[in-house]
Design a protein around this nucleic acid. Structure first.
Lengths: 146, 146
DNA sequence: ATTAGTGCAAACGTTTTGCAACTAG
DNA sequence: CTAGTTGCAAAACGTTTGCACTAAT
């Protein structure tokens, strides 16, 4: 079993260099909640390394996503990122009005899907499951308005 | 039971006007496969109404998405759209290398999630479930390369 | 020494906007 | 008539890129 390497080790193993910027991005990812934008990650990074540019953050996030160290999730208002955490796999419940996000611990991913995908020749590498709805506050606002 | 209204009826019921452009967008959506970009929809629209502008297409897609007549799905390279089809509810299996997309008919959405969401005060309005993987062709390419 | 990584600025593509003209109801 | 809708052009936004310079190995 080849596992439990730290992100840094995995980078090294692939021949990537460990720069202060890269370390900082990884630290920022650990410090940020799930679903953080590149901008927010940059702000977190800059607390420690004030001169890291936004494009370096993007380049590193792309690299980390490629290596499956972070999840990259697409949103209309920009992509969001979160450190992959196999220990605490979870999904999200997002309010479509205000963006409030809650975690859901139940994962719908079952063997049936692997099989279904295999039938079509696919080898599954990941999945996204997101629930959309209205949080209690936004439900109230809506009912007042109408 | 209030249902089975056509998209046009639903627009009318909400007080929106039925313009030729709006009709054309709806027709284009019906003619396009799932996961179509705004650009592609515009091209389809222009086959019949050559002068429809891209921003009109966007405005209508946003409106239709708000009314739950179309699904708007976020992709890093731009959002994609598909007509909501309650008869054939499905999810997608996307190749992360080439973008090839297959439909999956099994839906993971079960009452447990509604309950889980309700506990957190959310009222669920929708969900996204997407499987990512490598299609057979891209699996081959990858194994050759390495 | 060599190659990967960085910062800068400029480019890119998608989506949104302000506005004046238009049109469906 | 008049509120909603359109087309245009320009702007906004997140993201990517080319380049010369720097730094990790």
């Amino acid at each position: 079993m080849t596992e439990k390497l730290t992100p840094l080790d995995r980078l090294r193993a692939k021949g990537y260099k460990i720069t202060p910027q890269r370390r900082a991005v990884l630290q920022a990812l650990a410090a940020c909640p799930p679903f953080t934008t590149a901008q927010q990650i940059r702000e977190e990074v800059q607390k420690q390394q004030p001169d890291v540019s936004l494009d370096t953050v993007y380049r590193n996030l792309s690299l980390l996503a490629e290596l499956d160290i972070v999840h990259e999730i697409f949103r209309s208002s920009g992509n969001v990122y979160e450190l992959v955490d196999d220990e605490h796999h979870h999904h999200h419940l997002v309010c479509t009005e205000c963006g409030r996000t809650e975690c859901i611990d139940i994962c719908p991913m079952i063997d049936t899907y692997e099989q279904e995908a295999a039938k079509k020749g696919f080898q599954i590498t990941g999945h996204i499951f997101e629930l959309y709805g209205l949080c209690s506050q936004c439900q109230e606002k809506k009912s007042h308005k109408k």
